[in-house]
Design a protein around this nucleic acid. Sequence first.
DNA 1: TATTGTTATACTCTATAACTATA
DNA 2: TATAGTTATAGAGTATAACAATA
Lengths: 163, 163
Amino acid sequence: MLDDIRPRSHPVTADGQLPPERTEIRIWLRLLSCTTQIEKIIKSKLRQEFATSLARFDVLAQLDRFPDGLSMSEVSRHLMVSNGAITGLVDKLESSGLVVREDHAQDRRTVVVRLTEQGRSQFRRMARRHEEWIVSLVGDLSREAQSELLRDLTLLKRSLVME
Amino acid sequence: MLDDIRPRSHPVTADGQLPPERTEIRIWLRLLSCTTQIEKIIKSKLRQEFATSLARFDVLAQLDRFPDGLSMSEVSRHLMVSNGAITGLVDKLESSGLVVREDHAQDRRTVVVRLTEQGRSQFRRMARRHEEWIVSLVGDLSREAQSELLRDLTLLKRSLVME
DNA sequence: TATTGTTATACTCTATAACTATA
DNA sequence: TATAGTTATAGAGTATAACAATA
């Protein structure tokens, strides 16, 4: 997706040649293309096999890392998604029985969200499949390309944080 | 975003250590994290500076590459987005005066979408800014890291197409 | 006052299916 | 029949702002 997009500041030349693109732009377009394609596949499989969405999967993944639960605001910060959006996601997960809302011991404003037993085992099933999908999508790259890619993406991510 | 998500098949160990993650998963999480973050910034800037969206920008970018215009279905195929979605996007662009729908000379079912003069110059302005944003986001990487990254993403993209 | 969470509202983008006009 | 495009519908995710309860 978006594969062919080449935003440019110069018109197509008379012979139909496209002007050269800056490396940064080409990186971004490939990044977007790969991510969108993989994301589409993962979303579709999550929907087919587990009748869920990537956003809900992400919430479960966070909660799996914190057995004691997280407050709504903490989930919001971890996922970098607005407070109101988290309320909606947790509503759905709660009505599926995958998470519970509990009172906070000290602060009565705070709601603690935790995985239920069912939620944990369901998430584990999803995570196993998720790993299989990703390995089959990314695993064709050589080991060298993989470690290079991981290293460069880590650098990129770090430089984004600096902004 | 989604930075901290580590779907796993094993629980957090007693000492709080997270189990090692497969390289493929780590690549995917960084890919998703970087892309989401850049995308968020680009969307926000497109909205602020040009009161438009990434999807509409993508349509304009396609049309800029084809001065003679594209049929609705061709736009749909290029962007890998459904026909119905394209109708809505082109509706908005048309009412802003950036594109026009024209009859096809031979096939009376077909609608040809083209940039207007205003659409072309507006897109060029947007593309220039877009390039600046991307360069400032990705440009901190060394030249070596950039060409490695571009090469590896190209490999990844190619291997995705194979699927 | 500031923070937590919910609610209401509104806006994206998207896919699907039904429908028309034409090939 | 098959294709091109539109429309209607539905659903996903998101942000914002107003609000209640609590700190």
